[in-house]
Amino acid sequence: MRLNGNRSFSSFSFLALASLLALFLFFVTLLLSVFLYVGPRELASSLLSEEILFSIRLSLITATMATAACLLVAVPAAYALSRFNFRGKGLVDVLLYLPIGMPPVALGAALLIFFGTPMGGIFSARFVFEVPGIILAQFAVISALATKIMKSTFDGIDPEYESVARTLGCSRFQAFYKVALPLAKGGLITAVAISWIRALGEFGATVMLAGATRMKTETLPVAIFLNLETADVVKMSAAVLILAGVGLTALILIHKLGKRWPAV
């Protein structure tokens, strides 16, 4: 066996590789168990059922809209956090990342409580137990993550690039979109892909705010939950496989694109 930069095969190397193998087998077994439980024909008919097709469509639409809305805010916010110094920046930094360390179900509960207040009450009819509520819940969960990824990306780009661009005639905004943003392409793709996967799989905050109504607010994770409740294992397995397949495809895409656009 060839090991990177090390010819000796120590007991630690064995332990490390055994852990890797165990982890790999654990996830492969999880996925294969779905196939063992449900036959391909049953799976195919479930995939084409009206309910699962509705879930796929709703999940794709809401995750895409939440990701787009999140990036519109997260990219400039991350740029501001990376480039500008202002009083209370540390506090803003910590508060913005709070949703990463907070369970989504708690975030969803906070959203629900907000819509119960006099200020939130104005919009509650549009969001609570409605499809826009799904998008808002997903946005709440992914925005901190996208901001974190983009801030790390901008931190890795020397501001001197933008300074040079400005001496060449760019305004601050032009220096951002003509220089900083293209240089952040790799991080941007990662932020899009991870936010989108995370939004697609979002359950806790979604259920709290938009509820779990069949054929109304039934995203793929909600479909898993609802079909588990009615003991429809075939449909549940179909939803699990779709989510796993989409997630895996997105991760492969990140890996490939990450090689094409390495960090500056």
Partner: peptide, 10 residues
């Protein structure tokens, strides 16, 4: 302006 590391746009 030519900075020390040139900062050519890669």
């Amino acid at each position: 302006y030519v900075p020390q590391d040139y900062r050519l746009f890669p």
